[in-house]
């Protein structure tokens, strides 16, 4: 099990993958927005998306869990 964490505090602008979807290492999985800057978040590993833990518009802190990936 791999987890994708927020690399900064911000608001979830969009989620680019769904549960059950196959993704590759380094794929952009969602975008965070903070202080007028949009920052893409990439998956640190390939596999299948087991769970998306956030919704568009949610506020997350740096280090919060965003996604769970099943290798």
């Amino acid at each position: 099990m791999e987890k994708v964490y927020a690399n900064m505090a911000g608001i979830v602008l969009n989620v680019l993958v769904k549960a059950g979807e196959k993704i590759h290492d380094g794929q952009e999985v969602l975008t965070l927005e903070s202080m007028k800057m949009e920052v893409p978040v990439q998956s640190p590993a390939g596999g299948t998306v087991k769970e998306v833990k956030v919704n568009v518009g949610d506020f997350v802190n740096e280090g919060d869990e965003l996604l769970v990936i099943k290798k």
Binding site: N7, M8, A9, G10, S34, M35, M37, V39, E62
Partner: peptide, 13 residues
């Protein structure tokens, strides 16, 4: 700026 001094990423808090 409220940002990480290394990565220059926004850092609200």
């Amino acid at each position: 700026y409220a940002e990480d001094p290394q990565t220059l990423m926004p850092a609200p808090g």
